[in-house]
């Protein structure tokens, strides 16, 4: 099947097998190896990317489902050579050790902050529940997300990354229409 999607600001058109997962499309066809695979049951969240501004586990989305969508990966988060505040906060707060979960964790944290610009500790912990880290015990990740929230507020938040809900809904609708 032929699909077209914009990934990290660049538009790609490719023929893919219908069974190809979005994460495999990103890694194997586009070389977006910053996004990684940590499990086969969608538990670990390492493959989290943004699909039309919302976090998804890219192992749970078929590439063809992302046809016509805008995808942002960890590789597209920094803008104009400047780290996204969440990336910076992960560095500043030692929120990573081996770094394998980090791309997914950062992408999920950006989405979390879009929904809740000033989460308390428990809200961060709940919001990152679908992303596993084996190194950090999460404490510095929680600290980093709250630190990023402080640095991003007010108004400096992930809006740049976030497509308004209406737009996202509209995109889904149009895709549904195309499929039917």
């Amino acid at each position: 099947m032929r699909i077209t999607m914009t990934v990290d600001g660049t538009k790609y058109t490719d023929d893919v097998e219908p069974r190809m997962l979005l994460v495999h499309y990103l890694r194997e066809r586009l070389g977006k190896t910053g996004t990684v695979v940590g499990c086969d049951t969608s538990n670990c969240g390492a493959c989290t990317v943004h699909l039309d501004g919302h976090s998804v586990k890219s192992c749970s989305v078929l590439a063809v489902q992302a046809d016509g969508c805008e995808v942002t990966t960890i590789e597209g988060l920094a803008r104009d050579g400047r780290l996204h505040p969440v990336q910076q906060a992960f560095h500043d707060n030692h929120a990573l050790q081996c770094g394998f979960c980090t791309p997914g964790m950062i992408m999920q944290a950006v989405d979390l902050l879009a929904d809740n610009p000033d989460p308390d500790e428990q809200a961060v912990r709940q919001g990152l529940e679908g992303n596993l880290c084996r190194c950090t015990g999460y404490q510095n990740i929680v600290r980093a997300v709250r630190d990023a929230a402080q640095k991003m507020s007010p108004g400096a938040g992930p809006e740049a990354e976030q497509v308004a809900d209406e737009t996202a809904e509209a995109t889904k609708l149009s895709r549904a229409e195309v499929q039917s």
Binding site: G34, I74, L83, Q87, G99
Partner: peptide, 11 residues
């Protein structure tokens, strides 16, 4: 961290 937070990794 620089490579790990930007996805410029060599797994």
């Amino acid at each position: 961290d620089a490579r790990l937070i930007t996805g410029r990794t060599r797994w």
